[in-house]
C-alpha cells in the first residue's frame, strides 16, 4: 500500500529534524544501523498508540513490530513531504485499525500495569477523592472500566481520543495522521467524549 503523504509547510528544520532526515536517507539505502536509531526514537510513542487502541499488550507488541517492518519495506515510497514521524504514525494507525476490524468481536483486555506515579497524579487524586461517589473504586478498577469503555467506541472515535486526550497531539497533527480535515477531528472528538462520559458516568461525578 502506497502511503500518500500530506503536504506540510516548509519550515527551517531543527538540528534534531535534520538528523532525522539524514537517518531516513541512510535507512532508505539499506543502512539498518540508521533504521535501528529511528526505531529507538519512535518505539515508545508508536507502541503506546497501538496499546491504547487495542488495550492488549501482546497485540500491541506484534503490531508495533510489524509497523516498523512495513515502514522499512515502504521507505522507498517516502518522499519527505511530511515528517517521518507522521508517515510512520499513519502506517501504525492503519495497521492497527485493520487488525481491530478483523478481530471485531473477539477483543480481550491484556492491560499493562500502572506505574508507581499513578497514585500521586493530581488529576487522579482529584478524581478518586472523597467527593467521588464511587471512591472505593481502586485505580485498577478504574483502569479496567476506562479501557472497556474505550473499546466500545468505533476505531476512528477511539483514535482521536487516544491521540488527543491521552497522547496530547494537536488537532492539526491528528488530521494529518488520520488524513481528514480538522473539523472532522473536532466532531469525532466531541462525539467520542460524549460517549465516554455516558459510559463512565459513575466514575466522573
Amino acid at each position: 500500500m502506497i502511503m500518500a503523504e500530506p503536504i506540510e509547510r516548509r519550515e527551517s528544520k531543527t538540528p534534531a529534524q535534520e538528523e532525522e532526515t539524514a537517518l531516513v536517507a541512510r535507512a532508505r539505502h539499506g543502512d539498518l544501523g540508521a533504521y535501528d536509531e529511528l526505531i529507538k526514537r519512535f518505539q515508545e510513542r508508536i507502541y503506546a498508540t497501538i496499546y491504547h487502541m487495542t488495550s492488549n499488550h501482546e497485540d500491541a507488541n506484534d503490531l508495533a513490530q510489524e509497523s516498523f517492518l512495513k515502514a522499512f519495506q515502504a521507505l522507498k515510497s517516502f518522499k519527505g513531504g511530511s515528517s517521518f514521524y507522521t508517515w510512520l504514525y499513519r502506517i501504525a494507525v492503519n495497521k492497527t485499525i485493520n487488525f481491530l476490524k478483523q478481530r471485531k468481536n473477539r477483543q480481550h483486555l491484556s492491560l499493562n500495569d500502572l506505574d508507581f506515579n499513578t497514585e500521586h497524579d493530581p488529576d487522579l487524586v482529584a478524581l478518586i477523592s472523597d467527593k467521588t461517589p464511587r471512591r472505593e473504586a481502586g485505580l485498577t478498577e478504574l483502569q479496567e472500566k476506562l479501557n472497556a469503555a474505550l473499546l466500545k467506541l468505533s476505531e476512528p472515535h477511539r483514535l482521536v481520543v487516544v491521540l488527543h486526550d491521552v497522547q496530547g497531539m494537536s488537532h492539526e497533527e491528528i488530521a494529518k495522521v488520520m488524513d481528514c480535515n480538522i473539523g472532522t477531528v473536532r466532531s469525532r472528538l466531541f462525539y467520542a467524549r460524549q460517549q465516554l462520559q455516558a459510559m463512565l458516568a459513575d466514575y466522573l461525578k
Binding site: K40, Q43, Y51, Q65, L146, V166, L196
Partner: peptide, 26 residues
C-alpha cells in the same frame, strides 16, 4: 473525563521491554 483519561498515560509495558525492541525488529 480528561482527568480519568490521564490514567492511560500511567500504563507502561513490562520493565526492560524497549531494551530489545529495536534489535528484534532489525
Amino acid at each position: 473525563l480528561r482527568r480519568l483519561l490521564s490514567l492511560k498515560r500511567h500504563e507502561v509495558p513490562p520493565p526492560g521491554y524497549f531494551h530489545n525492541f529495536s534489535s528484534q525488529v532489525v
